[in-house]
């Protein structure tokens, strides 16, 4: 692991009106790491991701990626990132080929390399027969595959995955998990946001738990286990103050009587 962090976040704060969603967040991420970024709903996870991808331009604090400041030159940073959004937004009247061609060209890729890569990737994801079908007929999993390809098409240094497994079938899940590990081996940095604790546990070599706009746990799964509990699920509920999940369940049972 190299000494200079690839992503440096210093005192990052974000307000929505009077509500503070991120409270002086600071973190360093090193090349080749797979970060599991977890937290309950409304903890500030999506906000962090949106600031990193340049979707939210106004924030206080400092975000430096590969030595470039987000406030000064967001365009250069965006080139380094590949982003797979959570909500599966896609221009679904296009075909996968048209869509990926469009995305690749926004990154300034040459037509010839792009076409070759798109065809190969679509085939690798099992979409070879749907290359020229409009995506409005696609299942959720098929669209998710196209989004995944769009996130890695320009061979980015950093890949941000926001719930990338939603809608995928078991086989595709295995492929994507394997893919994450292989990309990390290639030296890519991966920022993985998810609610699926068991996957996070397996793929990430560093887990960050965020709650109410602050990082409340940060370390390898092993180190978290020593300090807290033995599964990520339990660690999660303990640290986010929902330790007594049994009580919640009993309240639910009681309400049925």
């Amino acid at each position: 692991m190299s000494e200079t962090p690839l992503i440096q976040i210093r005192n990052l704060s974000k307000f929505y009106g009077a509500k503070q969603v991120l409270k002086n967040l600071s973190l360093d991420i090193y090349p080749g790491q797979v970060i599991g970024y977890i937290g309950p709903n409304g903890a500030g996870k999506s906000t962090t991701v949106k600031i990193l991808t340049g979707l939210i331009p106004d924030f206080t604090g400092e975000v430096i990626v590969d030595g470039i400041s987000m406030a000064k030159d967001p365009q250069s940073i965006k080139k380094l990132f590949g982003y797979v959004p959570e909500n599966a937004e896609i221009y679904d009247v296009l075909t996968p080929l048209e869509y990926l061609d469009f995305i690749g060209k926004l990154y300034g890729m040459e037509s010839i390399t792009l076409e070759e890569r798109v065809t190969k990737l679509l085939a690798a994801f099992g979409l070879a027969n749907n290359v020229n079908d409009r995506m409005d007929t696609f299942s959720k999993g098929m669209k998710q595959k196209v989004l995944l390809i769009a996130g890695i098409i320009h061979n980015p240094k950093i890949i941000i995955l926001d719930e990338p497994l939603s809608g995928l079938d078991a086989n595709a899940v295995i492929v994507v998990k394997e893919l994450i590990l292989r990309l990390a081996k290639e030296g890519k940095t991966i920022f993985y946001c998810s609610h699926m604790m068991d996957v996070v546990e397996k793929v990430s070599d560093r887990i960050m738990l965020i709650n109410k706009g602050e990082v409340i746990a940060d370390g390898t799964f092993e180190s978290l286990k020593q300090n807290h509990s033995d599964t990520l699920e339990k660690i999660f509920s303990k640290l986010t103050g929902n330790e007594h999940s049994g009580d919640d369940a009993s309240a639910i049972i009681n309400a049925l009587d």
Binding site: Q75, Y83, N87, L106
Partner: peptide, 14 residues
């Protein structure tokens, strides 16, 4: 078109 937010904005387009 809300989708622009997620499709074009994260790419390096000024």
């Amino acid at each position: 078109d809300t989708r622009d937010q997620f499709i074009i904005l994260p790419r390096p387009v000024n």
